[in-house]
């Protein structure tokens, strides 16, 4: 993959367009996976990965993240609204209850270096590629 800030026409890359383009490419390859709740996007470079998921209205204490080798497990729960005695649901579309999901990462990660933040209902997890998993650089000796 070539990392270039300019597209073929020499314009500066709009991250939105870039996102749309990459998502189209993955969909075409049939790699947009099963839709298990919560939905995740995974971004990766050679030595790190970022996992994002949209889980609005959670208490960060109710989010449980664990990693083992190349498997990331997300668990969490969200309570429904407390209704007053005279209140009833007229419409109920939002999720509620517990979830658990395994995500396979592009490489094994350093379990001690996982960083997570929860902002505006979006959970962002950053992981680092395990040292042992990194490709070994092979030096070329000249005669």
């Amino acid at each position: 993959m070539l990392w270039s800030d300019f597209d073929r026409l020499g314009r500066f890359v709009d991250p939105w367009r870039e996102f749309e383009r990459m998502s189209r490419d993955l969909s075409r390859m049939g790699r947009s996976s099963a839709h298990d709740f919560p939905l995740v996007n995974v971004w990766a470079s050679a030595d790190k990965a970022v996992i994002t998921t949209e889980v609005a209205g959670m208490d960060p204490r109710d989010i449980d993240i664990s990693v083992a080798d190349e498997m990331l497990t997300l668990k969490g729960k969200r309570q429904g609204s407390d209704l007053q005695e005279d209140e009833t649901y007229h419409r109920r579309e939002r999720w509620g209850g517990q979830f658990s999901k395994n995500i396979v990462l592009p490489f094994r990660v350093e379990s001690s270096r996982v960083d997570a933040k929860y902002q505006k209902g979006v959970l962002t997890i950053s992981v680092q590629r395990a040292e042992a998993d990194k490709p070994r650089k092979i030096s070329i000796s000249s005669e």
Binding site: N41, W43, K48
Partner: peptide, 8 residues
């Protein structure tokens, strides 16, 4: 970074 998994 490259998008590796796209669900949403």
């Amino acid at each position: 970074m490259q998008l590796a998994v796209y669900e949403y």
